[in-house]
Design a protein around this nucleic acid. Structure first.
Lengths: 244, 244
DNA sequence: CGGAATGTTGATATGCCTCAACTAAAGTGG
DNA sequence: CCACTTTAGTTGAGGCATATCAACATTCCG
């Protein structure tokens, strides 16, 4: 067995919030049932009114909104430790869906249990609240990305973010990270056609900045990649930002 | 005198959250200092670490991110009752700025006071948390807008949202609302050039769907506008959605 | 090994940006 | 209050980036 979900969530919250010994003890009381997801399998659907929230244990999941024509807009991608639908604690109806990108494992934690923690441990409430606020900060970057940045910058920024977050979560070796998003999905996240995604990737390959193939992102030149992507990680609110 | 800021915030939170009599009483204890903003005047700057949060009393404010080249990406617009920088309660550094769009009045409320409320009145904490989550839902729509929707839909969606929220906040007469955003700013919000904004507005004018001039949005055909904008207000999480 | 999903390449068309000129409105100072 | 300046809005023309279409190559997976 890898880790209990308690360890995963403690690690994650500590990245941006202070937790006391009693808070951590309280987290260890959380139950939840594990669930394995096949690639592209939905975990929560748009329109649902869930009574539990997912914690990502491994792999990658994504959130997407379904447009009237059936087209998808991917909103964000999530890795180990993320709670992609934490907002359903306080927002009844899902305005978007959550699905596995590659194969993924999640633990579904009942809202009732989480509410129990929040009422009695305000530092935990604040930590999870902060988690949802960082989520919103990531959304703001996505708005900026899709609204203002040229194609290469747009792609580079997303790759910077995912690599950086993977490093922080401890699921990436120096220089590369698992990234099972296919080119079509990248297009649906970044508002670009699949052809343009492909050609932009080749641009970054040719400049020896990074490579992306077989679900593996290899970063050849992190400095150049952050410059191309205009990536400044301060929006992720880490207590101590790592040096990469 | 119009209203005290207590009335404004109570009204706003009630729109999506249940408040008990004691919660409302607690809110009435909030102090704060009023501030009038000239059009385009910044209220909080990117990089600041504020110790208070703004409550919009009247007029309109916007949030924007400054790109490396100095270009602005507007992220959202806010009206009476909104707390555009509530997230600074838990996120130290502002990753974006807040400025007045037209002339606006805000009340700056010290974080220390709000924390006092949160610790003692969990329904208030949950209500304000929910407020920030609805904010995030609005961001998700903006990502979708800028990433996936054609120009006319994009503009129509934003106008639908602002009109709808104005009606809910009680600051708009049936059929029109105050909207001091200029065409350049609309472009910076929606990722379109000023010329395209202008031509798209004229399209909507010509189809007798709406008119927008002199800081006034006039809705001639709400049904058509919502269809063009693919606008479904459920993401705003209102307890009882109004009929327009 | 065969079929499906994903990635790659070229050619074409077009929607949008850019540039530039001009009009209208709003704000300012004499 | 009017002349002047500045800002916002409008219109036309041209070029380019990116979507779309279509064929093909490669990898994945049963």
């Amino acid at each position: 067995m890898d880790h209990a979900h308690h360890d995963i969530i403690v690690r994650k919250l500590k990245v941006h919030s202070p937790l006391g010994a009693e808070d951590i003890a309280a987290l260890r009381g959380l139950s939840g049932h594990a669930r394995n997801l096949a690639p592209n399998e939905d975990c929560v659907r748009q329109g649902d009114t869930p009574d539990n929230s997912a914690l990502v244990m491994s792999g990658m999941v994504g959130r997407y909104y379904v447009l009237s024509g059936g087209k998808r807009q991917y909103l964000s991608f999530h890795i180990t430790g993320d709670m992609p639908d934490a907002q359903s604690l306080f927002i009844e109806r899902m305005d978007h869906a959550v699905c596995a990108i590659g194969p993924a494992a999640v633990v579904m934690i009942p809202h009732s249990e989480i509410f129990g923690l929040l009422e009695r441990h305000s530092p935990l409430a604040f930590a999870i609240w902060r988690e949802t606020l960082i989520d919103a900060a990531i959304f703001r970057q996505a708005i900026t990305n899709n609204g203002s940045r040229p194609m290469q910058t747009r792609l580079a920024h997303l790759l910077c973010e995912l690599y950086y977050r993977s490093r922080v979560a401890g699921v990436a070796k120096p220089g590369s990270c698992y990234l099972p998003i296919n080119q079509g999905q990248l297009g649906e996240a970044l508002g670009m056609s699949i052809v343009t995604v492909n050609r932009t990737i080749q641009l970054l390959r040719a400049s020896r900045t990074m490579d992306l193939r077989n679900s593996l992102l290899t970063v050849h030149d992190w400095k150049k990649l952050t410059e191309l992507g205009e990536f400044d990680p301060s929006y992720l609110s880490l207590k101590k930002p790592p040096r990469l």
